[in-house]
Design a protein around this nucleic acid. Structure first.
Lengths: 106, 106
DNA sequence: TACACTTAGTTACATAAAGTAACATAATGA
DNA sequence: TCATTATGTTACTTTATGTAACTAAGTGTA
């Protein structure tokens, strides 16, 4: 199993978005900068995985982590320009889901 | 970890697309109906997982499995209307990847 | 006829990813 | 002092995925 005829950039994008939680984290950050716990309780992800995802997304230039020295320190996550540029992807999924997903699709 | 303020239809769409290989299988079928082995070698997925994904997608009404009695029998997979309706999602990922993914994004 | 090959999978086993819960650390507030 | 909050991390369990071998039915070849 190795042959792939598919564009490597597309494959990278797909493998990023096929990672559980990644799309939801980005979707959540589209609503504005927020803190670790806010993201966690908004989407119901475990701290462990959220921490992993944020690191990956930061490292890929999609998310920015900012330390605000506001005693106690606030750590704020937000989307970079690259992150914001994914909005159309999330919107197209949202549109599709409204049109095609049933309440009882298992 | 339970609270989610996110639309359940959207969450279902996301959880489908966040499953490894699912988006790639649909993308591949956008190029036309094809057989098990064709999909397998086009995207480099294992037979086991492809078989699982096709069952899930069939059950969700996204993929159609057709037995063509052409001695030996041909089993052809294609997208339903619901499946085709996901094209804009895949295209938006494709567009984004062309604009934003670097050759060396790890 | 016997043997190898192809298609569409399935099974058994190994490895990797995710979930859960408890813990760490620093700061604050009562 | 003691409890609480924020941001994680660690250890352990469960689930998902990968790999390779195997099946069954039909076909082609010697």
């Amino acid at each position: 199993m190795k042959q792939s005829t598919i564009c490597p950039k597309f494959e990278k994008a797909i493998s990023l978005l096929s990672q559980r939680w990644t799309a939801l984290v980005i979707y959540q950050l589209l609503t504005g900068p927020q803190r670790f716990n806010e993201i966690q309780s908004a989407i119901g992800i475990s701290g462990k995985v959220l921490s992993e995802r944020l690191k990956t997304l930061e490292q890929k230039g999609i998310v920015k982590r900012e330390v605000i020295p506001d005693t106690p320190v606030i750590i704020e996550y937000s989307l970079t320009e690259k992150g914001h540029s994914m909005e159309p992807i999330l919107k197209s999924i949202e549109n599709w889901s409204q049109e095609w997903v049933e309440r009882d699709d298992e």
